[in-house]
Design a binder for these strands. Sequence first.
DNA 1: TATTATAGGTAATATAAGTTGCGCAACAAC
DNA 2: GTTGTTGCGCAACTTATATTACCTATAATA
Lengths: 189, 189
Amino acid sequence: MPPKFKFTKDEIISAALNLVRKNGMSALTARALAEELGCSVKPIFGLFKNMDELQQAVFSAAQNLYQSYLQDSVSKGEYPTYKSAGMAYIRFAKEEKELFKLLFMRDRRNEKIEENREDVRQFTDLIMEKLGISEDEAYMFHLEMWIYVHGIATMIATSYLEWSDTLVSETLTDIFTGLKHRYLQKGKE
Amino acid sequence: MPPKFKFTKDEIISAALNLVRKNGMSALTARALAEELGCSVKPIFGLFKNMDELQQAVFSAAQNLYQSYLQDSVSKGEYPTYKSAGMAYIRFAKEEKELFKLLFMRDRRNEKIEENREDVRQFTDLIMEKLGISEDEAYMFHLEMWIYVHGIATMIATSYLEWSDTLVSETLTDIFTGLKHRYLQKGKE
DNA sequence: TATTATAGGTAATATAAGTTGCGCAACAAC
DNA sequence: GTTGTTGCGCAACTTATATTACCTATAATA
């Protein structure tokens, strides 16, 4: 009996994500989103309890988008799996600067470490296998490698740096090789 | 004939910097600052045209604080000059997380590149001398090294990572050594 | 001590944001 | 076609912020 909803949750989240990817989370206001959708603010609050709930949803949508970068990059098979992950992270930073800031340049105080550990395990496993080193060493290896990847990505996301995919790719290989020598050397001592 | 000012510009900037170092620039509101100073908002607007001007002043004060980190680190002579700079950057990230974000994790679109080039020249000069490589190579060397330093620093500033000074120092040396080998190798080809 | 320019406190104004009450209108069931 | 439910547009209310008008209090000088 009641009227149909003018928009679905997904349509609203999608419009919200568009605002955020252009100007960051602070650009996501009820009025701006209503404008983007071509309606009043009422439909928004009909489907979301408040703006906080919507922000959560947008955050999740951003995470999903990043996951799709990751999967695309890996499944394309242009690089080894581990390298694909780094390339995807950096490509995401280049193409979705605001979303990258939102996901990866935010404060991590009050973060559950366990989640992160789980995300990282797949990488450490890859490295253990590839280099034949212990899990702890593989964790440190990955951390050092990822510090580098994260460094490039943050510089690109803040427009401090502009590097072509080719340059990124070559440099990552060089860094990886350097690290590998160091870690394999360590094993011989 | 007029009454004395209740505060100097420096006192206001200092109180403002205190707010910002604790909770970031968004915590710097006229009312909060007045509260911190124990006065109404009037003295603030008597000495600063508006909040924007005050923000600029706080930004400069933050830059000065970073410079003092840099100078202290270099003049202490605990490490070679170049390494001191990296250590200072990372120590600043650890001890002044909000100020680090303000200075070094901000958007650089619309930035004059020349300023940066000048900041960097002193480092490239050091490296040219130390390794005997060309200016362009030294620039790339520094950039790669600094990507790493920046990576650690941003991770620490966002509380994603906690590393002791000792671990940082050792790892920086390892990275530097690895890079040096690569760049000197390159020269031989 | 009286004068006078002006800093400072109080409270008003302006703007932007989230949230909500009111009444109309859509629409499925009858 | 009537009806009951409820989404929606409009405009109001609320809160937080910057900025300012107005008046009082201060302090150097005559």
